[in-house]
Design a protein around this nucleic acid. Structure first.
Length: 885
DNA sequence: CCGTTCACG
DNA sequence: ACGTACGTGAACGGA
């Protein structure tokens, strides 16, 4: 007989995490009666994951019974200062228990005990009976139960995945045994459970003590021998507290549970009950997984999408009805500059036409219709369609709705770019995700014609559906203007930039390649000689063996997998061994060669240009990103900067021209915060870093500012934009944390409204669940409620940074649209080629450069009106290298 | 397919 | 005390 596997789930912990994992869709997950269902939904997804990954024969979900437990009797403050759970969460708990019943899973709670204790008790009983046990929770405390028969699975990334802890993996991560976790918490306390441990003892000190003494008992037994110190005083003073906290941290494995192991058999769903439950809560996608319609009456169940062959005649007839039509141009891969089209579909609510080829795009009527601005179309990924149709000589016009762009704006967090998944999240569950139809990874292939056509017809139907629901969502977020006047027009601008491409001179790159490969060989030989052996210098693992094991250098930093050999570390080891210098040089040269010289050569199209793709629906802040190749990270400093000499205009007698915003993020901050001092600095066009230095170093004039002061002030300004912490600033400019904290204090003294702004953003994120930019670009921050300090802190910094970075992104996007308009109106030959976040690069005939030098800065600095002026700096030259100010 | 490293703003 | 700066993409090595 196979071993029994008991899965024990910490119900409250998983439910709570489920609630916040889908906090951003709180409004969308609501029954007509007003019951929120997001936590129930996410909890059920988690159940699917657990059942799938842990494959239980027996299962129990344990819940906390109430606030009063044996622990609060021992220590009244236990879990004392927890904020009350939101009503939207509490109302869902009874339904989660109902869901469990329908899924054939027992749930249980016990007065005076926490879910942890039920789990500990059942786990202990079960392993004595020879079960394997898996505990599922979001709470690290339960890892204390891990042993050879008990695995603890912790939720990661909300509730989307599980990480399994065995005693070995626990030991690897914490370097103590699971049981020692109790001692650890006894010493360091637990802020979220609100017990203190020993004063001034944190994780680092506590771990050190445990490595030395093993347990709290043994520590105190040997305390006499410890040298006198602050630490010792605290240990003596807080002895009772240490023992009490250890007791609080220890899970009770002898709780008086009234449930028996043999009641926990898991036998699968109670199908009828579960269907009724899903229907009650409108869980369409779960029903779909069971192949059951939302509507119980088959006659009214969803109709199969009907479609006809897409022919010119059929299209003409359809178009003459003069209705908006959804258009789908399908291809398998992402690179729409070259990827072949595998099908085309067009349609509205009544008629859908589908073809499994691109013949229709060769027809004149079709071309005319696609180019007709008056003929309204709905699409998914407009920029893709624009570039693809351009290959057929078609200037695609009339698209007023792009479902991909719209869903991105509504929630940038949800970074799926699959029409099926997006449609599903808006309640249309008829369309399969592309992956299920086309396969994934190496197995991507065109399916049989009928399946393909059905899929495309479904895409048209999904687009029709989304066109009705997404605009409402945009409106609700006050994002109409962002969509209609920024993102949609920007798609056209970006498409043109991608189509035009930028010319790269292969001769420049080949010459560099010759030089670099020679130097690389020399460095390689020098490194092997100094190491006394050959090895793969590109392997950080092998390199760390050479440096730290063989040569005995001191490792300064750890990574997940070993010792770090990053530049930061190597710079510090530079003086200790000559090999380190060679390695740093090797790394720099190898990077230039492989990523830039060879990488760029590979990306050059037959027209001698590189055509990047700007991803318009990816970043969390509203910036663009650039891929295949990435033209937004071409080296700008040091030796790598020479790469820019290969970027040249497409015609003789032309030049490259570049304009960039000066200090745009700080200017945006000055505007957003309304800080008078900072605004004045920009109005007077002071050197902002020197000005900041003067203020925070308490000087009377900028003349007293030394270069070093300016450097530190500059780093502080950066830190502020990133959502400052003393720790991060200290690390960055090499000062003590205390000094950094003083810096920040005097910074906030000088720019008081900046501090107010930072606090306000965090508060807004907590209250509204999101922050937004000047153009109402929105980012949800569910982690702002996280219990874990690092996770929560990250969300807080994001809350401070996103409106700044995102507003700057809004501004340059507006400038790009206006600029393209100006080039057209003024009949200039100049073309906009690249955008690098705060910089625009053009090419133009020599005689237009003077015009650009006037026009571009004017358009860029008037893109929006802020409370401070925007400043733009420009340069021109025969290559990108020369066109850099 | 993930982790490390390093390029950009 | 707890450990991090914000946002990206590509190459490479090693499971």
């Amino acid at each position: 007989m196979t071993t029994k596997r008991l899965v024990l789930v910490d119900g409250n912990s998983i439910a709570f995490r489920a609630f916040f994992a889908m906090h951003n869709v709180l409004d969308k997950f609501k029954t007509p009666e007003g019951l929120h269902t997001n936590a129930i939904y996410a909890f059920n997804s988690m159940l699917n994951l657990i059942l799938n990954k842990a494959n239980p024969t027996d299962m129990l979900v344990a819940f906390d019974a109430g606030k009063v437990t044996f622990r609060t009797k021992m220590y009244p403050q236990y879990k004392g200062d927890r904020p009350t759970t939101p009503d939207e969460f509490r109302e869902q708990l009874p339904y989660i228990k109902e869901l469990l019943t329908a899924r054939g899973i027992k749930s249980y709670e016990l007065a005076n005990y926490e879910a942890d204790d039920i789990i500990g008790t059942m786990a202990t009983q079960a392993k004595q009976q020879g079960y394997e046990v898996v505990i599922v929770t979001g709470d690290h405390d339960l890892t204390q139960l891990a042993d050879d028969r008990v695995t603890v699975a912790l939720t990661v990334k909300g509730v989307s995945d599980l990480e399994f802890y065995t005693p070995e993996s626990f030991k690897e991560e914490m370097d103590i045994t699971p049981r020692q976790l109790i001692d650890l918490k006894g010493l360091m306390g637990d802020t979220s459970d609100h017990y203190p441990g020993v004063s001034k003892v944190g994780k680092i000190t506590a771990l050190k003590l445990l490595h030395q003494y093993g347990s709290i008992e043994n520590l105190y037994a040997n305390l006499g021998e410890m040298k006198p110190s602050r630490l010792k005083d605290h240990l003596i003073e807080d002895k009772d507290m240490a023992f009490l906290c250890k007791q609080l941290a220890e899970i009770n494995c002898q709780a008086p549970v009234t449930i028996q192991l043999n009641e926990l058999h898991y036998d699968g769903d109670q199908r009828e009950q579960l269907i009724a439950f899903y229907r009650k809560l409108n869980f369409r996608s779960f029903l779909n997984q069971m192949d059951v319609p939302l509507d119980p009456h088959p006659a009214e169940a969803r109709a199969k999408v009907d479609y006809q062959p897409l022919t010119v005649t059929a299209l003409k007839e359809l178009v003459q009805k003069q209705q908006p039509l959804s258009v789908v141009i399908e291809m398998l891969g992402a690179d729409y500059h070259t990827e072949p089209i595998i099908g085309v579909a067009v349609g509205n609510e009544e008629t859908i036409l589908v073809a499994d080829h691109d013949d229709i795009l060769l027809d004149d009527f079709t071309k005319q219709w696609l180019a007709d601005e008056q003929a309204v179309k709905y699409v998914f990924d407009l920029k893709c369609d624009l570039v693809t149709l351009n290959r057929y000589g078609i200037l695609f016009k009339g698209a007023t709705f792009d479902a991909l762009l719209a869903s991105y704006l509504v929630d940038v967090n949800d970074n799926t770019n699959d029409l099926g998944l997006i449609a599903q999240s808006y309640g249309y569950s008829n369309l399969l995700p592309d992956m299920e139809v086309y396969g994934k990874g190496a197995h991507v292939a065109v399916p049989p014609t009928e399946r393909l056509q059905e899929h495309l017809a479904n895409k048209v139907a999904a687009l029709n559906y989304l066109q009705k629901s997404l605009p409402e969502a945009l409106k609700k977020h006050d994002q109409d203007q962002l969509f209609d006047e920024i993102e949609l027009p920007l798609s056209h601008v970006l498409a043109q930039m991608e189509i035009d491409g930028v010319k790269v001179d292969t001769n420049v790159l080949r010459t560099m390649q010759n030089d670099l490969s020679g130097r690389l060989a020399a460095l390689e030989a020098a490194i092997y000689e100094k190491a006394g052996q050959k090895f793969n210098i590109n392997s950080s693992k092998q390199l760390s063996e050479i440096l730290f094991d063989k040569m005995g250098l001191k490792p300064l930093k750890k990574t997940k997998t070993g010792y770090s050999t990053s530049m930061e570390v190597l710079e510090k080891l530079r003086d200790q061994a000559p090999i380190v210098d060679d390695i740093l040089n090797y790394r720099q040269v190898a990077k230039i060669q492989s990523t830039y010289v060879l990488g760029l050569l590979k990306a050059i199209a037959p027209d001698c240009r590189v055509h990047t793709r700007y991803l318009q629906t990816l970043t969390q802040t509203g910036r663009l990103s650039s891929v295949d190749p990435n033209l937004q990270n071409i080296p700008a400093r040091d030796e790598g900067r020479d790469i820019r000499k290969a970027f040249v205009p497409q015609q003789a007698g032309w030049q490259l021209f570049s304009s960039d915003y000066s200090q745009i993020e700080l200017r945006v901050l000055a505007h957003l915060s309304g800080d008078d001092n900072m605004q004045q600095a920009f109005r007077e066009d002071y050197d902002i870093h020197a000005h900041t230095a003067m203020k925070i170093f308490n000087l009377h004039s900028v003349d007293e500012v030394t270069p070093n002061m300016r450097r530190k002030a500059k780093a502080t300004n950066f830190g502020i934009v990133y959502g400052i912490s003393d720790y991060g600033l200290a690390k960055n400019i090499g000062i003590s944390r205390k000094e950094a904290a003083e810096f920040i204090n005097s910074y906030f003294d000088q720019y008081p409204k900046v501090e107010e702004y930072m606090n306000e953003m965090v508060k807004k994120a907590r209250e509204d669940g999101y922050v937004e930019t000047i153009m109402h670009r929105r980012r949800y921050l569910p982690d702002i409620h996280a219990r874990s300090f690092p996770v929560r802190s990250f969300a807080e910094r994001t809350a401070m940074n996103t409106p700044i970075q995102g507003s700057a992104a809004d501004i340059i996007k507006i400038a790009m649209i206006n600029m393209e308009q100006q080039l057209k109106e003024q009949h200039l030959q100049a073309r906009m080629l690249l955008q690098v976040h705060d910089e625009l690069i053009f090419e133009a005939p020599q005689e237009e450069i003077e015009i650009l030098a006037q026009l571009v800065p004017k358009v860029m600095d008037s893109a929006v009106t802020l409370d401070v002026p925007l400043k733009v700096e420009s340069a021109a030259g025969r290559t990108w290298f020369e066109a850099k100010g």
